[in-house]
Design a binder for these strands. Structure first.
Length: 569
RNA sequence: GCGCCCGUAGCUCAGUUGGAUAGAGCAUCAGUUUGCGGAACUGAAGGCCGCACGUUCAAGUCGUGCCGGGCGCACCA
């Protein structure tokens, strides 16, 4: 189904084709948006035509503009230098758009592009025995946004978590418990904090003492085979972590359907490696087992350590094969930290050597640092997710109570949570994935400007208007635009389907937040300039229809971002 | 040393995949409320788009080289 904007574009293209004849080809992709809305709604640059026709682009533009008849979506065409700019007929364009938004409702903006395509998205990959910090948050939220956007484009998405429940970090932690805290049994809500504390102590002990390191490595090898005295402690502490991870996924709205655990791939990985050794793909080098990828300029893929312990890369091979076996996804996207780009390439190259040709896509994102530098559990400068969340909720509560002294505690709590989570989500998603986030608490706690709460506020004001109007009269979809800002608002809403489509294709997630912020800005301007409730009759109804449409578009965007569209705040 | 990413306003970032006069937020200054919610709006100020060549009608955007920052490159995950 075509969006209204596409229909308008098609009409423009059709007219262009009629004027230009068959000797030159023009397509929808040639159309642009003019830099200044005053210039028009769509622009057609004549440069490439100038070359083909050997005439000046300005001349061509004038000729085209004079030959375009005002009809349908097109109110006027004019030549501005080498561009043909057209203005929309607000009555036709506005009515089609408002009808389209009203009819499609929650589905407005979605496309069918992904129909019949399955996509596996792996994105929530924390380790057990460690605390969740703001770095994980970027991964969780970006991954979930990708899932939501792909689903809105009707891809059949399989959201997948991969939990690092086995590895050196686990061994270190268990060693730490046995060595320093054998007697301690933490309270239920302090279990993971306890594991974090143990990890730091164990990690420093390992750095200071070679003997300790050896003990840990021995422990790891035993654990790796799921044997020995530590298995029961591993199971218990692993359970502690999983409880917390699941709770956090739930409160962040992660819709994980498939759970994979690193510990499940140990046997498979060993079998695969043995098989690859026979085939000569895996070879022994410096005592370790590797795949030589020098020819691909990817160094060596180290799979098994000299002491026989499996490395992460080895289990990743098994994971990739298992995904294929379980789901046969047409595409497979891994949302992983940019620091693992080489490892991801090595994985793909190794799989190719094995005859597994399906490419894995790596949606890479830069990590989150503090002003002081990289966060590391050992350095003790990590900003824990739960601390951030609690601070944001506390601040949101304070601000909410300031504004609504009459509200009860329960209501304040509910609204404050929505505000705090919107700030957190938006803050993590508003920036391009390939830019580092230098985490600044003060900035994170800001609720003004380009922030989640600003969007919620805009939405809440819309709801306030709609509540007061009580919708006693049926909504009209005719429109008589009087001010430029009304026209701008229509155009902005019309762009939503295109944005959603492009975000799905390019995985440029931040552009969705940019778009929604821009829409809110235009609406805020409208809000200050155009009265609604003081109007009567048809004008009132038309403006309510407009406001309701904005409400719908914003709501659709909020759902994708995981922001709760609250009625008041 | 090799590879990848980043460099745009004081700070944090956009820039429609090569198009018109480079835009937002924060901070600063000056305004707007007995009109639907001031978590808002309007305006001002603020730019050798890291530097230099090149490609072409056109470069913040593409190519090459340099400078600066980050990350990765064999037993961590």
């Amino acid at each position: 189904m075509l969006s209204v904007l596409q229909e308008a574009k098609q009409q423009f293209i059709k007219e262009l084709k009629q004027i230009l004849g068959k000797e030159v080809s023009v397509s929808i992709e040639d159309l642009e948006a003019p830099p200044d809305p005053k210039l028009g709604d769509l622009a057609f640059p004549c440069f490439s035509l100038a070359k083909a026709l050997k005439r000046s682009p300005n001349e061509i533009a004038i000729e085209i503009a004079t030959n375009i008849a005002p009809q349908g979506f097109i109110k006027k065409a004019k030549a501005d230098g080498p561009y043909v700019n057209i203005l929309f007929n607000d009555e036709v364009f506005g009515r089609s758009l408002l009808e389209s938004i009203h009819e499609q409702g929650d589905a407005y903006g979605s496309s069918d592009i992904g129909k019949g395509n399955s996509v596996m998205v792996e994105y929530a990959q924390p380790n057990t025995h460690k605390e969740i910090h703001v770095g994980h948050l970027r991964n969780f939220l970006a991954g979930q946004l990708l899932v939501n956007v792909l689903r809105a484009n009707h891809y059949e998405v399989i959201p997948t978590a991969y939990i690092g429940d086995m590895g050196m970090h686990v061994a270190k932690c268990l060693w730490g418990i046995k060595t320093f805290f054998a007697e301690e049994e933490p309270e239920k809500d302090e279990r993971v904090a306890f594991l974090g504390k143990v990890y730091v102590k164990a990690a420093t002990a390992a750095e200071e003492n070679e003997e300790v390191k050896k003990e840990m490595a021995d422990l790891f090898r035993e654990l790796d085979e799921l044997k020995g005295p530590y298995v029961s402690l591993w199971k218990k502490t692993r359970g502690w972590s999983l409880d917390v991870i699941k709770a956090i996924y739930k409160e962040l709205g992660l819709t994980i359907d498939v759970w994979y655990f690193e510990s499940d791939f140990i046997d498979e990985a060993r079998k695969i490696i043995a098989d690859l050794q026979k085939k000569g793909i895996v070879v022994k080098s410096e005592g370790a087992l590797i795949v030589d990828l020098e020819q691909e300029h990817l160094g060596v893929n180290l799979l098994v350590k000299t002491d026989g312990a499996l490395l992460y890369n080895a289990k990743d091979i098994a994971l990739a094969l298992r995904k294929e076996e379980d789901f046969h996804p047409m595409r497979s996207i891994n949302v992983i930290d940019a620091r693992q780009t080489l490892a991801q390439k090595q994985l793909v190259a190794t799989l190719r050597k094995m005859g597994f040709e399906k490419p894995l896509e790596h949606l890479s994102y830069e990590f989150v640092t503090t002003k002081e530098g990289t966060m590391a559990s050992r350095k003790g400068n990590v900003i824990l997710y739960e601390d951030l969340r609690d601070q944001m909720i506390a601040l949101a509560k304070e601000e909410t109570m300031k504004r609504h002294e009459e509200w009860g505690e329960k209501k304040v709590e509910k609204i404050a949570r929505a505000i705090a989570f919107s700030a957190m989500r938006f803050g993590m998603l508003k920036q391009d994935l390939d830019k580092k986030i230098i985490f600044d608490l003060e900035e994170a706690l800001s609720f003004e400007g380009f922030t989640g709460p600003y969007l919620l506020y805009t939405f809440a004001r819309i709801q306030s208007i709609l509540r007061k109007a009580k919708k006693t009269t049926p909504l009209r979809t005719t429109i008589h635009v009087q001010a430029p800002v009304e026209h701008q608002l229509l155009v902005a809403m019309a762009h939503y389907p295109e944005i959603l489509y492009l975000v799905g294709q390019s995985m440029n997630l931040a552009s969705l937040t940019q778009y929604l912020f821009g829409l809110c800005q235009v609406f805020s301007e409208y809000y200050h300039e155009i009265p609604v409730l003081t109007e009567e009759g048809e004008v009132l109804q038309e403006r309510l229809a407009m406001v309701e449409a904005v409400s719908q578009v914003l709501k659709n965007g909020f759902v994708l971002l995981g922001m709760e569209p609250i009625e008041e705040m």
